[in-house]
């Protein structure tokens, strides 16, 4: 139908025609009206000269203006601080069990100073202290798994997308196979193989199963970028494989990977909590939100707050990373909005 929302061809988009042209020299030409033969222009005033801005720079400028980004950044920085220095936020030992203080005792104002202002769990441990100390496991798993999958998936995707042909066929088929395994179910099976389960075994299990998502994103992105004229131009200049990969393709292909990885980070934190909840992830005495949620379910009728606080901490953390991912995506690719 010629009369509905037609995709207007790119060059008809007035906005597109404006942005590529930077402006201060035009401005300068416009106002001074000097000869612009051969477009050789001399800057009028060095102080006024606009900073050279890279696309990353633009994205950063854009990000700083987004409230969602600011809120999520503050949250994430706080969470990381808590994870690294839990002692700064509570003086209470999260493992100290005082059966006088069990979940049936209502917290009163004295608890505010004693570190028990979220109340106490079934074994009389301060819920507040446990929420604070539990951050470390969640954040560690989230960040380490994300780093690992970005690295693994990124390399696999880069190899598949860049070399194509057989290596692509093989890597893509492996990716497909892994993709068919549900993350949680797969992790359940894998973790059963570990006799002692620590944070690191959870990281290994999740990374082993999670890299395929990133590999796919990376592969698609690399294939798109590989066809760009500037990569062809690089080849025409005689650039070798590593230069093409790391100088031309990677910087242009990485943006969607970063976005997906940031959003996936929240998912890994949830996965860790879920595994711990199911009793197959982390175990007591490791302190983790998942473990606490799991033990809280036994007393949910009598004391719902025992469940509420670790669950809320988990939700806020996941939300913060997802918001951050959204903001980064919007900044890196305005077209996705």
């Amino acid at each position: 139908m010629p009369d509905r929302n037609e995709p207007i061809p790119d060059d008809h988009d007035p906005l597109r025609n404006i942005n590529p042209t930077d402006s201060d020299h035009l401005d300068y030409v416009g106002q001074q009206g000097l000869a612009v033969e051969q477009e050789t222009l001399i800057e009028p005033d060095p102080a006024k000269r606009e900073q050279a801005r890279s696309l990353w720079g633009d994205a950063w400028r854009d990000l700083r203006r987004r409230p969602i980004f600011l809120v999520s950044t503050v949250l994430i920085v706080l969470l990381i601080l808590i994870a690294i220095f839990p002692g700064l936020f509570t003086g209470t030992d999260p493992r100290a069990s005082d059966l006088i203080n069990n979940y049936l005792r209502r917290p009163d104002w004295t608890d505010f100073f004693g570190g028990g202002w979220f109340g106490y769990d079934g074994q009389g441990r301060s819920i507040y202290a446990r929420v604070i100390y539990g951050a470390r496991a969640s954040i560690t798993v989230g960040i380490c798994v994300t780093l690992a999958v970005t690295l693994l998936g990124g390399m696999a995707g880069m190899a598949a997308g860049f070399f194509g042909g057989w290596s692509d066929a093989v890597i893509s088929r492996i990716t497909d196979i892994f993709f068919g395994i549900p993350l949680l179910l797969g992790a359940l099976v894998l973790l059963n193989a570990f006799s002692v389960r620590t944070v690191w075994s959870v990281v290994i299990a999740l990374a082993f199963l999670g890299w395929t998502q990133l590999a796919r994103v990376m592969r698609g992105s690399v294939i798109t970028v590989k066809q760009s004229d500037y990569v062809v131009a690089g080849r025409a200049l005689g650039a070798g494989t590593s230069r093409l990969m790391f100088r031309h393709i990677l910087p242009n292909a990485i943006a969607p990977v970063i976005v997906v990885a940031t959003i996936a980070l929240g998912g890994y934190i949830t996965a860790e909590a879920t595994l711990s909840f199911l009793g197959i992830g982390l175990q007591d005495p490791t302190i983790s939100w998942g473990v606490d949620i799991s033990s809280a379910q036994k007393v949910i009728r009598q004391a719902p707050f025992v469940l509420f606080f670790p669950a809320a901490a988990l939700s806020i953390t996941v939300l913060a990373f997802i918001m951050m991912g959204d903001a980064v995506r919007d900044a890196l690719d305005p077209k996705l909005r």
């Binding site: 590529p20 050279a52 890279s54 696309l55 990353w56 760009s228 004229d229 500037y230 062809v232 131009a233 690089g234 200049l237 005689g238 650039a239 070798g240 230069r243 100088r247 031309h248 910087p251 242009n252």
Partner: peptide, 25 residues
């Protein structure tokens, strides 16, 4: 190349783009 919008690497400065031939050779 035909399209000046796609034939220059958007993550590189003009100096890097024109200087790249010298790095390769």
């Amino acid at each position: 190349f035909q399209d000046p919008y796609t034939s220059l690497n958007p993550r590189m400065t003009v100096g890097d783009i024109i200087g790249e031939p010298f790095e390769i050779h």
